[in-house]
Design a protein around this nucleic acid. Structure first.
Lengths: 139, 139
DNA sequence: TCGAACTGCAACTAGATTAGTTGCGGTTCG
DNA sequence: CGAACCGCAACTAATCTAGTTGCAGTTCGA
């Protein structure tokens, strides 16, 4: 939802209301405000209150990656850790948490790097290209 | 939990009961059987019933990666998709699902590749090394 | 041949999380 | 002043997960 909203803001390059974004998401304005609120806290978008208000990008679409959006809305780790520490009495249990922490952090990082290589601008470009393809120019 | 269990089986290279594994996990036997059941369905471990029964690896620890364990127990995608399809009336909404599917699949794949490069044998090795380090040889 | 020690499985509970909703207060602008 | 916005808290409903209980089936050894 965050990426979808960011892409909309970049596509039309004007202030959009949470109601407009919610419509495209087939969702509801409060939910959109919640998510965009996180994006604002992360410095990706800004909002203005009152009549005529709405949301817009706080920086260029080329300077916002999917990773930025990801970390803004998703708090914790992706790979689930042990819910509670394993037994210290077991040779394996004693070290598992540390080992997994290292492995998982590594794995999460390569994924984040991949997300960091796609920008919102890139998505807008692909949306426009798809539109041209689907509805070829009227001569 | 799956990785922890696999590592235990590899470490001692003998049949372990779900109760033994559960103790190290500070969890409970039924839960362990549920997880090892998935690993068995994936061909990573085998179980024998009855007295003296238990679980053991179905192939060498060097031939089991964290990715194998991961896919055996985690069904769906990691990155959450749109809960329901966005509006078709919106230029962005029309294409977002496809675009994100591509991006997310890519991102998930690099993570899976990373998980596929660590084997259970590697973890056992690290556990043993850590044990040597923590409790240096008695002369 | 009985009984202890196992796995297998279904049904249930409790808690956490998530999408979605409602309601209200504050801000801006015409 | 009032319409059109955002901000926020409180609530609901659905889903997911860990954990539990209970019982049936299997195996082996005394």
């Amino acid at each position: 939802m965050a990426i979808h909203a960011l892409t909309m803001l970049a596509r039309w390059d004007r202030s959009l209301t949470s109601a407009e974004i919610a419509e495209s998401l087939a969702s509801n304005p409060v939910l959109v405000r919640r998510i965009l609120g996180s994006l604002r806290d992360a410095g990706l978008v800004s909002s203005t209150e009152g009549r005529g208000g709405g949301w817009s990008l706080a920086r260029g679409a080329r300077e916002i990656t999917l990773y930025d959006a990801y970390t803004a809305v998703e708090a914790g780790p992706i790979l689930s850790r042990h819910a509670h520490p394993p037994s210290d009495a077991c040779e394996v249990g004693r070290h598992m948490q540390n080992l997994l922490e290292t492995e998982f952090r590594d794995a999460e990082q390569v994924m984040q790097e991949r997300l960091g290589r796609t920008t919102i601008a890139h998505l807008v470009q692909q949306v426009l290209a798809a539109e041209r393809g689907a509805a070829p120019a009227n001569h």
